[in-house]
């Protein structure tokens, strides 16, 4: 009876993780299979069929399931191809940010002293710039392109990782098991990799999954103002910008691209939130006591 119940009961946060991860995996799958899924070339113009509504509405055409934009491009195909940039940015940026931020944070928290102080001041100054403005400035300096978008986003966002992970490293450093590892003869690298990293791993995982959503938003903002990837590559941000001009005649392009962004970010946040609940020992401890 009891086991039966236990098997069907989801752990706290597990539902959120399942829903969030599933949607994100779908986005990745769509991005990978874009050439086979999309009915049209995303840049193919059909000037006779501009601003068509979705197929199920009056005047719609099943050749263009979600309608067309002001140049007669298929919204559905552009949406699918747009997922490619979102998927790349949404994987590479979180991993990169995490590597840069966590490495600096662990070094800073472990070494302490003047290095730690300098890093903390640098992060303070860095974070005093509005994130979007800073990435815009960086993109204006760098040339447009996917690689530079990723670079700019990492350069802006590592500070958040750094600050949160550093404070948790400082907390761990106060625990005696770090001193115990030192007097057991562990090297500095050994302590950082075997004692500190496992200790901050739950936070790293949570931050990384939340960063997926942030990366997608930042890329969309940059696309929207036209300083992201090379022209000609469809992204959700570019679609919003295009759709804005004709929002009163044909809001479709805008609605679908905005929905795509919102759903992706929502899934990323659900994933992060769920992982935090699952991995936080304090939460699971409370649950265990209450049970």
């Amino acid at each position: 009876m009891k086991e039966h119940k236990a098997r069907h009961q989801l752990r706290l946060g597990e539902g959120r993780v399942i829903v969030g991860a599933t949607f994100l995996l779908i986005v990745v799958a769509v991005a990978v299979c874009a050439p086979w899924l999309a009915p049209h070339d995303p840049n193919e113009q059909d000037l006779l069929q501009i601003l068509l509504p979705p197929a199920w509405l009056d005047g719609g055409d099943w050749a263009y399931p979600l309608g067309t934009d002001s140049l007669g491009r298929d919204v559905f195909s552009r949406l699918i191809y747009g997922a490619r940039v979102a998927a790349i940015v949404g994987t590479v940026v979180p991993v990169g940010t995490c590597l840069v931020g966590a490495t600096i944070a662990i070094l800073s928290g472990y070494l302490g002293g003047i290095f730690d102080k300098s890093i903390s001041r640098l992060v303070d100054i860095w974070m005093s710039f509005p994130a979007v403005v800073l990435s815009l400035v960086l993109m204006v300096g760098l040339s447009p392109g996917l690689r530079n978008v990723i670079l700019a986003t990492i350069l802006v966002d590592w500070t958040r990782f750094c600050r949160i992970i550093r404070s948790s490293v400082i907390g761990l450093m106060k625990l005696e098991y770090i001193s115990a590892a030192r007097i057991a003869g562990a090297s500095h690298v050994g302590i950082m990799t075997r004692d500190l990293v496992p200790g901050v791993l739950p936070i790293i995982i949570t931050l990384t999954s939340v960063e997926i959503g942030i990366a997608v938003i930042v890329e969309s903002v940059l696309s929207f103002v036209g300083v992201s990837v090379e022209p000609g590559i469809p992204t959700w941000g570019v679609m919003i910008a295009d759709g804005l001009a004709t929002v009163f005649q044909a809001p479709w392009s805008l609605i679908f691209s905005v929905s795509a962004i919102v759903l992706t970010v929502l899934s990323a946040n659900m994933l992060g939130d769920g992982l935090r609940l699952m991995l936080d020992p304090r939460v699971s401890e409370r649950r265990r006591i209450e049970a």
């Binding site: 005696e176 098991y177 001193s179 115990a180 007097i183 057991a184 003869g185 004692d195 496992p198 200790g199």
Partner: peptide
Amino acid sequence: IASIQFVFQDPRAALNPR
């Protein structure tokens, strides 16, 4: 550390929980 070792007061804090 080859000659001197230390036993900490609180084993819960001194033993890595993982």
